[in-house]
Design a protein around this nucleic acid. Structure first.
Lengths: 225, 225
DNA sequence: CACTCTTGAGAGCGGCGCTCTTGTCACGGT
DNA sequence: ACCGTGACAAGAGCGCCGCTCTCAAGAGTG
């Protein structure tokens, strides 16, 4: 591969990026179910068959969008939890949670794509799982250096294994019991945001800002922050 | 309407039920995205156009399946939380949560249909929201007669409103602060099950039985059970 | 019996994902 | 400078899909 890419290579990269941009706009506008290769091609003034030179399948295009969405939300959350002068652990954690929810509210279709029901026969792709781990790991990183919870009851073997896998995946210096609690908080956060976005709170806590804030504070309490 | 239904009416009811049964089988087998009116018609030996006499649209068929799924899981949870001799509140609550998770694991596609990303432009149908409220109300009913949490700090207005709406919807004699906590536990339970089913726990707490049990016990703790 | 209203079948519309073929043009080696 | 290779866009086409329309047959009712 030459240091200076040929015109063809540049064109390919640019068109690939254009396809992704158009696809993302369609996704944001009408959701993943309505995203069609033909519509993207139309928007770009191409024959639909031409797109298959860049993405072999609709699922492949969707996968690229999934990775983009994971990275996008991870950027937002990582920025929110970054250590700052005078920012307590609790502030960083709740800020990260709030950033996560805010991103989800701004990008509902992208959120549904990555945290809703898996579209086809859900691919456990390496790329996507790695990208998907960034947000929970960012939230976990806030807890680094904390002691174990007050009552460090012995963990069930399955839980200890899970915590070990989290540690291996990058969850640095956090006691296993706290990792388990953090994972519970992570699923709770997902439940909060999914419930709000998918309409499970309709007719009850519907404008959910106060409910979300209270829930996030409760999570921080539970983590001993 | 005559007391004795005509042959045509009986036939219509039966065929409607058959359509739902076939559709449900397809849903359980391949998921909501793959459910097609034509395939259901094929399975029943009908022309696809004939099905439109019974369900005006694919969405209408899906809505019927949604209501069925809501009722199905509600039956399971209500049975699990029913008061029994010697069953403590805590046992009834955790049993209800476990029944919810068990139903979801047995019916992943139905679960995705009702708690995953809303399929089209999600209808806030009256029928579906009423059916969807049964499970959380069943879990809430376990808490009836309990006192308010230790620190009944004044609720934000939005939260008080939400709790009032829950009470109006059938959440009987439960203090508002406890209703809020219960709602948080409900979204946390949804997050737990969704995470497990949608693959968010892959590579960490993947065989999630121990994790789920620990999480459910933690919810019971939080409710003071 | 005549009538109406319901039902099921068939053809058909436009859209979808995806494949195959065809003509064209950029690239790299000689 | 030229020519062969390979990437490329386009078009036609396949089998699906949701949905509509029309039409013939049959059940229900006076």
């Amino acid at each position: 591969m030459p240091a200076v890419p040929t015109a063809r290579e540049r064109a390919r990269r640019e068109l690939t990026a254009d396809i992704l941009t158009a696809a993302r706009r369609q996704l944001a506008g009408s959701g993943a179910a309505a995203l069609s290769v033909r519509a993207v091609a139309r928007e770009l003034g191409l024959a639909s068959s031409a797109l298959y030179r860049y993405f072999a399948t609709r699922d492949e295009l969707l996968t690229a969008l999934i990775v983009q969405a994971y990275d996008d939300v991870a950027d937002a959350v990582e920025a929110a939890v970054a250590p700052r002068r005078g920012a307590s652990r609790r502030t960083r954690f709740t800020g990260g949670c709030r950033a996560f929810r805010a991103w989800a509210l701004e990008h509902p279709h992208e959120y549904a794509l990555i945290h809703g029901s898996p579209v086809p026969g859900y691919r456990g792709d390496e790329q996507t799982t790695a990208a998907g781990a960034r947000v929970p790991l960012a939230l976990l990183s806030v807890l680094e250096g904390m002691g174990a919870p007050a009552a460090p009851s012995r963990l069930a073997p399955q839980l200890a294994e899970g915590a070990a896998r989290v540690a291996a995946a990058g969850g640095g210096e956090v006691p296993a019991a706290l990792v388990v609690t953090a994972a519970q908080c992570w699923t709770a956060l997902l439940g909060l945001v999914s419930s709000e976005l998918f309409g499970q709170l309709a007719n009850t806590f519907d404008p959910a800002d106060a409910f979300a804030d209270a829930t996030i504070e409760a999570l921080a309490d539970r983590l001993g922050l």
